[in-house]
Design a binder for these strands. Structure first.
Lengths: 136, 136
DNA sequence: TTGCGTGCAAAGGTTTTGCATGGCA
DNA sequence: TGCCATGCAAAACCTTTGCACGCAA
């Protein structure tokens, strides 16, 4: 049933994502990194692989607040419970905040019950301003 | 202090947005509409004016979930004391669902109070499965 | 050998910018 | 008249696609 090959490019990309799981990685960052260390990877390869990782729920994808901006990717660590959290991203400084909160579980239940919509915790990101950026 | 002129293009754009305040309007829709009725407006004019309207808080800008997709705009009706309006997008069929719900207001307040994070209603989209797609 | 993966270049779609012209005040 | 607004085309950006070649199994 395994329909994919193991290639150096894919191994490198996934390793890079795992080594940077606390950061937001763009396709451009991956491309630049591997070009700089002398192991360039074609951009179509990067985009295509990222897409398939997102599809397999290995990686989370989110789009920044501005329309023209690049999408960010983040490795999903199965061992940790990031799957159970919601995330909030600051539209100004870009920081990602993990939200562990019963209240939001309630919302999730409420939406399912009243609005018949099954929220996908992993894919949903709440945008707004973090505490620091509110001050400015 | 008023540094802007009144032009036909701007009047038309704002009128169009007001007449469609329940809908999500893209720049492309505006351009196409006015071309079709024989009063074409240049796309740079549309984009530039929409930007300034967003800056002045006359219009809300939504960035859709997909990265390459067009931004949506919506006129903010001051009279209707802009009831906060969240969106849920089905990850399967792509339909966008408007969510008017007090429960979410509560969440928004809770997050601000307890987690010091100021949610940006316009930019946040809740992802999940709509009723139809859950059945499949 | 089979057929998926790769990478280049080109195309795609949205938005921005440069610059000469048009039009409000 | 002074300036902002407009509009065209071109560019900038991020991303996708076509296609020939490479490489894993």
């Amino acid at each position: 049933m395994e329909r994919s090959y193991k290639t150096k490019q894919r191994a490198n990309i996934i390793k890079y994502l795992m080594n940077n799981k606390s950061k937001h990685i763009t396709a451009e960052m991956i491309i630049t990194y591997f070009k700089d260390i002398g192991k360039p990877i074609g951009k179509s390869t990067v985009y295509r692989y990222l897409d398939s990782l997102v599809e397999d729920n290995k990686v989370r994808k989110y789009v920044a607040g501005e329309s023209g901006s690049a999408a960010c990717f983040q490795y999903i660590d199965d061992a940790h419970e990031c799957k159970e959290h919601y995330h909030m991203k600051c539209t100004k400084c870009g920081s990602l905040i993990h939200l562990n909160c019963d209240e939001i579980e309630e919302l999730s239940k409420h939406i399912f019950k009243e609005h018949k919509f099954k929220l996908d915790v992993c894919k949903t990101i709440l945008y707004g301003l973090c505490q620091n950026c509110q001050k400015k």
